[in-house]
């Protein structure tokens, strides 16, 4: 079943065309990777999908519902949540509080004035479960800003996951990570695949080739190829763009 469907997405910044007529679909249960050189338009594509930027033209459909140009909070409520390439957490709040604010978003009492935030049993259980999944159970009381870079990246994923999305969008989850940290992130994503559909921007080719069911390649704002990891690995155009082959 198609979860996300993009039709003819265009986006320009002034004279610079950043996204050119992008069509893309993400099927339920898959891991879809978006790759391409720096400046190819990958993050802009995420920004357009998640409401950070409106597209100039084109349509974003999620679960057959048109979500084009909705505000980010509405898109998150619709079940589509993203993480950020540059770590975007609540640095002065504790790890637990970071996940808690995210987890609360699906609660019936999400904006209640008079109930106690910490006495929502189901939310608390969910927070514990997610902390465990992203490997941060030992650091719950620690201010998030004091975690190592790799742990902050995992917290970022945990927060996104805690909003209970049906499509999890990860923008370079391994950026700035050591090889060991990258490997643990790969394991994490592999585990997450069992519960949620994932769309990921990534530069780590090892991760992309190992985990993806489907890959789309962007270059200068255009989709130049799309297919299985094997097909992409053999695609002459992709090899030219990535490896500089003639």
């Amino acid at each position: 079943m198609t979860l996300l469907n993009l039709q003819g997405i265009n986006k320009s910044f002034g004279a610079l065309k950043v996204l050119s007529d992008i069509d893309l679909t993400v099927s339920e249960g898959q891991i879809m990777s978006v790759i391409g050189p720096n400046g190819a338009g990958k993050t802009t594509l995420f920004n357009v999908i998640t409401g950070y930027l409106p597209p100039d033209s084109g349509k974003v459909e999620f679960e057959n519902r048109n979500i084009t140009g909705l505000k980010p909070f509405r898109i998150t409520q619709a079940g589509l949540a993203r993480s950020f390439q540059i770590t975007n957490i609540f640095a002065r709040l504790t790890v637990w509080e970071n996940i808690a604010l995210a987890a609360q978003t699906v609660s019936k009492k999400r904006t209640s004035f008079l109930s106690r935030a910490t006495s929502q049993g189901t939310i608390n259980q969910k927070i514990e479960k997610i902390l465990d999944e992203v490997g941060l159970s030992a650091w719950t009381g620690q201010p998030a800003g004091t975690l190592s870079h790799g742990d902050q990246r995992h917290l970022e994923i945990g927060m996104t996951l805690a909003t209970s999305p049906r499509l999890l969008m990860l923008d370079e989850p391994t950026s700035g990570m050591s090889p060991a940290e990258s490997a643990s992130t790969m394991d994490l994503i592999k585990n997450l695949k069992k519960q949620v559909t994932i769309m990921v921007i990534e530069h780590d080719m090892d991760l992309v080739m190992n985990l993806s069911d489907h890959i789309a390649v962007l270059d200068f704002g255009q989709k130049i190829a799309e297919g299985s990891p094997q097909a992409i690995a053999q695609n002459a155009e992709v090899r030219r763009v990535y490896l500089g082959e003639a």
């Binding site: 998640t50 505000k71 980010p72 909070f73 998150t76 409520q77 949540a81 993203r82 950020f84 975007n88 957490i89 609540f90 604010l101 995210a102 978003t105 699906v106 999400r110 904006t111 927060m159 909003t163």
Partner: peptide
């Protein structure tokens, strides 16, 4: 970030 967690 609060907006991206689903809050208006």
């Amino acid at each position: 970030r609060t907006q991206f967690l689903g809050y208006d």
